[in-house]
Amino acid sequence: MITTKGLTKVYRSRGRDVVALDDVDLHVRQGEVFGVVGTSGAGKSTLIRCVNLLERPTAGTVTVDGVELTALAGSEQRAGRELREARRRIGMVFQHFNLLSSRTVQQNVELPLEIIGLDRHDRRRKAAELLDLVGLADKARSYPSQLSGGQKQRVGIARALAGDPKVLLSDEATSALDPETTRSVLKLLRELNQQLGLTVLLITHEMDVIKSVCDSAALMRGGKVVETGQLTDLLADGRSQIARDLFPLGDFGTGREDRTVLEITFQGDAPAQPFVSQLARTYQIDINILGAAAETIAGRLVGRMRVELPGSHTDNVVPIGYLRQQGLQVDVLDLSNGAAA
């Protein structure tokens, strides 16, 4: 649904070039919630603004729903019309709501419909439907100043849906909200994704957002995508930084040569199996649990556990094989650098 190839954005600042995006390739599948996570300055917001061409890329292509938007970004009048039409299929939710204080909630939602020339009766009907969809039917005549932060963001979401988009872009839409309100807004985005078949691309600096709502994710650093994939695949990869950030497990272990530290990833039915106690009984070994975490991600129960076994890696080949036979992802940590061996 969304594909970028070689996407590059360079700004000129104080006589020097600043690279905000550096050869970014990204693919978001139809109907999924895709999260882009990274620290401030990683290039996340520039990326999402290039997807709908609010920022013109310096190089590369952007394709949304089969239409290459960058090919429509020329100066010709026809290309401009086609680009505007393509943008109507892309909704945008902003961090700071961007509501007009002089308009009521309903009038804010009607604004994009007014711009495209829809008559008053149809505007009101459509706005009422959208406010009901986001749970604000009773706030239609209120003004933004009378709303909470979460309610303002729901108005922003309703407005973004006014053009019946196939894609919804969310630029840090929950970063200004408290945790409880954040959860309710993320739940709404997931419901809209499922009910309307929306493809959602969201930008965030919070791993909890990725954990709670996303099907796939990408990690950005310094304008580059350094890791991307479906969450279930990333969590099964012992080298994944996203997986480590989602499930921080603390210290790696004692660092002694006569110990083996394992990272065990389990998904689906595996968490219901008492594999640690079974392993201890079967091989009569003492197991030290260093850390564990489990969450429901993309509708599946997923978790990670770090354990320490007595003896070297060679001594533990059979117990490691036993764990893998149970359908578990098992990685042996190199204690010198904390990475999977």
Rank of each mutant, 00 (worst) to 15 (best):
K126E: 12
G60F: 00
L113H: 02
E114M: 08
V155M: 05
R306F: 01
G311A: 14
T199K: 03
S45Q: 14
V28L: 06
S75R: 01
A173S: 10
G303D: 06
L72C: 11
I285F: 02
E172L: 06
P271V: 02
V105R: 08
V225I: 08
R244K: 09
R221F: 00
A294V: 11
D258P: 12
V167Y: 00
P310A: 03
D331T: 14
G299R: 13
L333R: 03
G41W: 14
Q273Y: 12
G163C: 07
I157S: 14
V276I: 13
V18P: 05
K187F: 15
L168F: 00
A272V: 12
D215L: 05
V225A: 13
I210D: 01
L72K: 02
D23E: 15
G38D: 04
K139S: 00
A162V: 14
R306Q: 04
G327E: 13
G197Q: 13
G35Q: 06
E172C: 06
S216C: 09
E191R: 15
L333C: 09
V332A: 10
T3I: 05
L136A: 00
A128H: 09
T104P: 10
E206C: 04
I289L: 08
G60L: 12
M1N: 13
R88N: 14
L290H: 01
L192G: 05
A293E: 09
T104N: 08
M1T: 11
G321Q: 08
V302K: 02
F34D: 10
G311M: 12
L47R: 07
T232D: 15
S240L: 07
A293L: 03
R81D: 02
R190Y: 06
V276M: 12
T174P: 08
R49K: 13
E308Y: 01
R183D: 13
R29S: 15
